[in-house]
Simulated scan of single mutants.
Amino acid sequence: MLDRFGSVADPLVEINGLTVAFDGVKVLHGIDLSVARGEAVGLVGESGCGKSVTWLAALGLLPKKASVSGNVRLGSTELIDAEPDVLDTVRGGRIAMIFQDPASALNPVLRLGKQVGEALALHGGLSGAAIRAEARRLFDLVGIPDAARRLDAFPHELSGGQNQRVMIAMALAGKPDLLVADEPTTALDATIQAQILELLTKIRRETDMALVLISHDLGVISQTCDRVCVMYAGRIIETAEAQSLFDEPLHPYTQGLIAALPPLEGVRRRLDPIEGNVPEPWNLPPGCAFAPRCPRRGEACDAGVPPLAWKAPGRFAACIKALQAEPVRPREPVYA
């Protein structure tokens, strides 16, 4: 549960006022986010809203042209502008990240066992036969069949789902306190997607590892996460416990995202998309960035950027018209 200031008690990772700019153009506008040990936090929003950039900036993985400010604390360790040896210890050790595309994240000319072994040597202090034995154990843990033989395979010899499991094994090699999964089920079929999500949930519960799941798929988030943060145009615009957010979203943008989902049961209904597009970072409207697309827009919405404010226990929204929760607008049925 969040307090009235949007923080969790005794956070594992705490981000305060994180901003990122490229060539003088801001793409993140002061992100505040806390993650507790063992917690699963979902980060959702349309493409380009800043979900991945938030954590790439937190871990010092953005290119040098990026201008990053704010604070990211892992316990007592500050990560922004930290020395390279500090970041080398944190990345892959305390905090691990699964990137969107395993085909590009894995080295195509190195055998999979060697790639996992590098992480085990760096963060686990293993060597020799112990590396191969632990790599095989990790492959078994993530459900890769015939693990001993797969250690000597190259990435192109495995399917997309199996390579994603290899990425998870590499991330777990350092026994991280926090795993950041950036679209871990992209381009996977529904069956493999469900298996990957079940695997992440199982590992989190068994190891008390915190999980940040970055996705545009609300269904994935609802099944996996305890708490959800919704992002739009470089800002967090709503945060709440997952069940509360999906049952009764407060922000018009969140309401629009949920209204655009097709129903899984009952009568088929016409989809209700959000009109317009996410504004470009260099051409943000005055006031609320969502105002041009918002069905409840008023003159006050252009007066200033609404802060992420407390609305109810555990509920925060950046909208001057979100004082009362509103149910998702009913959609017209589609007749065959």
Rank of each mutant, 00 (worst) to 15 (best):
I236Q: 09
R227Y: 09
R149D: 14
S222D: 11
A233N: 02
F154K: 02
F99E: 00
D10N: 14
I168S: 08
V212N: 10
R227N: 10
I214V: 12
Q115G: 05
A173D: 06
L179H: 07
R132A: 14
K51F: 01
L12G: 05
A57T: 08
E14Q: 15
P333T: 12
D32I: 03
E14T: 12
V44P: 07
A194W: 09
E134Q: 14
C301K: 07
I168P: 00
R165V: 00
I15K: 01
A190H: 06
A133E: 14
D101G: 06
L12N: 08
V86Y: 00
E157M: 12
N16G: 12
W282P: 02
L179Y: 11
R4Q: 13
R94Y: 10
N163D: 04
Y335D: 03
I237Y: 00
A147P: 15
R150E: 06
I95T: 08
I31L: 02
P11Y: 01
P11V: 04
L179R: 07
N163Q: 15
Y232R: 12
F139D: 01
A21P: 04
N71T: 14
S67R: 14
G219L: 05
P307E: 10
L120H: 07
V13W: 02
T224D: 02
E78V: 05
E275C: 03
E332I: 08
A336H: 10
W310G: 10
M1A: 15
V8Y: 04
A309E: 15
V35T: 01
L179F: 13
F139N: 04
D177H: 10
K64S: 15
V328S: 06
M170Y: 02
A82Q: 01
E118I: 08
E265D: 10
Q223F: 10
A173Y: 05
D226W: 07
L178Q: 03
I192P: 06
G125N: 09
A103S: 13
R136A: 14
F316S: 01
V228G: 02
E157C: 02
G45Y: 01
C225F: 10
A121N: 00
M231G: 04
R296I: 11
L213T: 07
A300Y: 00
L18C: 03
P285W: 04
L199M: 03
P313N: 11
D85T: 15
G266Y: 02
T254R: 10
C301I: 07
A210C: 07
L59A: 08
V72S: 09
I80Y: 00
A21S: 08
F246E: 04
H251K: 09
G219Q: 08
T19W: 15
V41A: 13
V68Y: 03
P11A: 09
E238M: 07
P285D: 04
D182S: 09
T224Q: 06
H29D: 15
A36V: 05
T186A: 13
Q100E: 10
Q223G: 09
G298D: 13
I95P: 08
A57M: 02
E280Y: 06
P63N: 04
V8S: 09
G304H: 06
L179S: 03
V27E: 03
R73C: 12
T185Y: 08
H29G: 07
A153M: 03
P292K: 05
G38Q: 00
L112T: 05
A312S: 09
D10F: 10
E206D: 13
A169Y: 11
D3K: 09
L28F: 03
D247F: 12
A317K: 01
A96W: 11
V328H: 04
D10S: 13
R137S: 14
T77H: 02
